[in-house]
Amino acid sequence: MKIASLIKEPIEREMELFEKKFHESMASQVPLLNRITYYIVNRKGKQMRPMFVFLTAKLLNEGKVNERTYRGASVIELIHTASLVHDDVVDDSYKRRGFFSINTLWKNKIAVLVGDFLLARGMLLSVDNGDFDLLRIISVAMREISEGELLQIEKARRLDITEEVYYEIIRQKTATLIAACCSLGACSVRPDSEHIETFRKFGELCGMAFQIKDDLFDYGEDRIGKPTGIDIKEQKMTLPLIYALNQANSKDRKWLINSVKNYNKNRRRVKEVIAYVKDSGGLEYAESKMMEFKNEALEILASYPRSDYREALELMVNYVVDRRQ
């Protein structure tokens, strides 16, 4: 059995019902909007985020979820989908998960408006049901994602990212949304409990490991997930490159910075940078940090009684670092 099926097994019924509720949450009086949201629903990804919500809730509530759990999962997926639609416009991407992006099929103006609609639906789903505690968790995540993106853009211009700043960027950009999923799951069944913060931390650690794994794909030989060297072409300072810069003598450091700044579209130069990072031990260093985050996340789970839900979350943590795309 595939690992994804094993993770989903304890929440299969909830995920089926969630898909129906999620689709309903996007309903509109505008036929064009309904056509687009139908297209979005039918090209869904792995659905890791709602899975985190349901597994956390069931772990903390003797295997039971409630309507707030479904709303929390729907809100996080609405917000996440909106951010992806907007990202594709900003990045001028024409594909997403192997399908044409919304902006490719319906142009930028419609894509931006669809993203805005999804954001508003997410907010209203919480407000209309009085889920203000859930709304606060989501709103903090949205603020941090925006701050993380802007911090990365600011730092990319000067290429002066330290390891600490890198961790702050990925914490805000990637980890904060997974942290929100887990704290939402906890908050939906155990409001005002210490579990909300515990699982926020757990999700954050998973998200940190997830992003470092993504960074490592950029140095892979078999072009999994995204084309090799794309982060360098986009002047993104990832952990393997930051480590290589820190280890380099002043001459090599100058060459690396010059390569990323001025020769990032030159395929031969990008290959040379990748080779330099590998030779300097950048990949091993990033892998060791990724494993530290993974092990910290597993330690948090170990403090809870063993159950199918805990085991599924442990599988999820391991999947984050073992995945092939």
Rank of each mutant, 00 (worst) to 15 (best):
Q152C: 08
A141W: 00
I110S: 05
L125P: 00
R157M: 11
N66Q: 06
I137E: 08
D128T: 02
R97P: 09
T104A: 15
I138Q: 09
L125I: 07
D133G: 10
L177I: 09
L119N: 04
A156C: 05
C182S: 12
A57S: 15
G148H: 13
S74Y: 06
T81N: 15
L177Y: 10
P50Y: 11
L60C: 10
I169E: 06
H80Q: 15
F100Y: 13
L135R: 02
Q172V: 02
N66V: 10
L134M: 12
V114Y: 02
F100A: 11
V127T: 09
Y94C: 10
V112W: 09
N129A: 09
I102Y: 00
E67D: 14
A141C: 11
I161H: 00
I145D: 08
E77S: 11
A73F: 13
R96I: 11
M142R: 01
L60N: 05
R171F: 14
L84M: 10
P50Q: 09
E62Q: 13
K64M: 13
F132Q: 02
R143Q: 14
L105I: 07
R143F: 12
T69G: 07
A120T: 15
L125R: 05
S74M: 12
I138C: 00
F52E: 06
I76M: 05
M142Q: 14
W106D: 00
I110Y: 02
F54R: 01
K64N: 11
K95P: 01
N129Q: 06
S74T: 08
D87C: 08
F52Y: 12
F54D: 03
I170H: 08
S139I: 01
L119T: 05
M51Y: 04
E147N: 12
K173P: 01
N66R: 08
E147S: 15
D92H: 12
I161M: 15
K95I: 11
E147K: 13
N129F: 04
L151K: 15
F52S: 05
C181K: 12
G130T: 05
V112S: 01
D131Y: 11
E149R: 12
I178K: 04
F132K: 09
T56A: 07
E62P: 02
L118V: 03
I178G: 03
L60H: 12
D87S: 02
R68V: 01
L78D: 02
K173H: 03
S126F: 05
S83A: 13
V85P: 08
E77A: 08
E154F: 08
D88R: 07
L150I: 14
A180H: 03
D88N: 09
T162R: 07
I138A: 09
S146I: 10
V114M: 11
A156T: 10
C181H: 05
L113W: 01
S101N: 05
A180K: 01
G148M: 11
I161T: 15
S74H: 04
H80L: 02
E67A: 09
E147T: 06
V127W: 04
A111S: 15
